[in-house]
Design a protein around this nucleic acid. Sequence first.
RNA 1: GCAUCCGUAGCUCAGUUGGAUAGAGUGCUGGUUUCCGGAACCAGAGGCCGGAGGUUCGAAUCCUCCCGGAUGCGCCA
Length: 587
Amino acid sequence: MTSLVEKLSNIVGEAFTSQGFSVELGTVRVSDRPDLCQFQCNGAMAAAKKNNGAKKNPREIAQNIIDILCKRDEFSKVEIAGPGFINLDITDEYLSAYLVGSTLDKRFGVNMLFDGQTFVLDYGGPNIAKPMHVGHLRASIIGDSLRRICAFAGYNTIGDVHIGDWGTPVGMVLSELEERGIIGQFITAEDLEEIYPASAKACKEDKTRMEKARLATKKLQNGDAVYRKAWEQFVNVSIEGMKKNFDLLGVHFDEWKGEACVHDLIAPMIKTLKDKKIAEESNDAIIIPIKENSDKKEIPPLILLKSDGAVMYSTTDMGTIIDRMQTHNPVKILYCTDQRQSLHFEQLFRAAYKAKLLPETVELIFAGFGTMNGMDGKPFKTRAGGIMKLEDLISMGIEKAQFRLDEANLAKDLDKQEHKSIAHKIAISAIKFADLQNPRQSNYIFDLDRLISFEGKTGPYLLYQAVRIKSLLRKAQVQTQTQDQTQKYIADNKIDILIKDEDRTLALLLSELPDHFKIALKNYTPHVLCDYAFRLAQGFSSFYASCHILSEKNKDLRASRLALCDLTYKQLELVLDLLGIEIPDRM
RNA sequence: GCAUCCGUAGCUCAGUUGGAUAGAGUGCUGGUUUCCGGAACCAGAGGCCGGAGGUUCGAAUCCUCCCGGAUGCGCCA
């Protein structure tokens, strides 16, 4: 199944080749002037340019193409405009046939591109010592969405949370426990929330405290029994808390590994790399030099072992690559972290290939995301200057959703359980959509009001449109139980879509899904899907306002419109699922 | 200092290989309910795309310079 613009591009491309031009010139895209045409091709102007020296007239080229296209029966309009735009409209029959076909294949024209190849995605990355705050939002929901997108494309995906449980922050906590003389005692999540910041503050202010933290890190990594036991205990407590947060968000992981998991791989790795002369000593540390002559900027070496002999994140990241290759043998590994870590990943990737931890054919991908800033343009802090906990943010969203449900008078006929579940879905949709709609790479301003806003371009708006369709289809089922064909039409997917003026915009929109999916997959950018989902919801809302569906007298048209609604719902459901957003039955 | 990213409507932001009249949301103004869910729909106002040059049929997009901001640059993650 190819997408509609691909089909059209093939047709127009063929026309270009027959005139001695290259196929790509026939690339067709959705028109940016819907008042003039549905689709456009700009290839004639490019063709005139490529004919270097002897310039051809682009309108003349376009005319030749048009003469060929006019003979085809897919188009209802073929025109030249301006300097040589080829403007195209397709027939309603062709559009209808395309939609029926894309519905029947259950993937709406999106190809299964990868046949079960393994793709490891590393996202979330919470730290044992720190409570989960709004800063973890992007890392987990973007990563989770990318996992869903890759899975739909056909990859066998493995999402790994990659917990930070082996570095200096852990040493800070251990040294603090030591200071207080409570090492070995049971530590609760609440304790941890107080202990880590206190320790971090002390280490920042006092060099000898920092030194203690480093020693504690080293001691833990060397296998000290007391430290190891204490560590295990608060790691478990911490993971429980993380799971609670990720469950609330609906973010899924296949693996709950951490930095510490690869500890046993590290000593042999370092020995091998030293033997092979890939790693070397420098200032008491062990490094892998990765500079290349072609570099325009300074690339510092990757530090494999710190001068005190302890391992750091660059070490465990190397070890993790070995582990992933051994256990999963993936074709791709993607890292979704803060953009500010881009240099680290450049170093890691170079070092990993240089050390031959994986063949060049395995692709390492850094999908960095922008910082979440406050209204002042600096990394976000609450008014009190602290961090905002993820749990609190979610609670605020749920509270607001519940209030809104009560206001809409939906509350009284729902039991408490369902009421809460709906409010939760609404809140999560608001939070996720507000975040995901920003392009992954760019920084964005954290605006609490916007994040839990329910009007306009928001998650709840999308849910609302989906719920309206659901309700409509539900009613149609009831009404048609007697003799109308609608139920059968939809159930069998044997739809025949009639396209009137009111239906056309939505029908055209429904043909675009594969193209947006492809871009989202290629660039690892969920926001492209957010944009499509929103336009689809908007398109439906206009359609819904412009014509009556259930009361339509013409039986065929009524059935066709219900089919269009059904298709819209299914696409919305799919795209929202790719974004990690669930649709409630009512709201 | 070097490197990367950014500057588009009052505010928050889209804008895919360079294309026609630069788009959303929000806010503002006005309108829409005998009928499918108003968290909605329709219309309007709002712009020197940071500035100056250049490339060309054509630039928010590509090149150069300048101004303004964010981030990173050897033992934190």
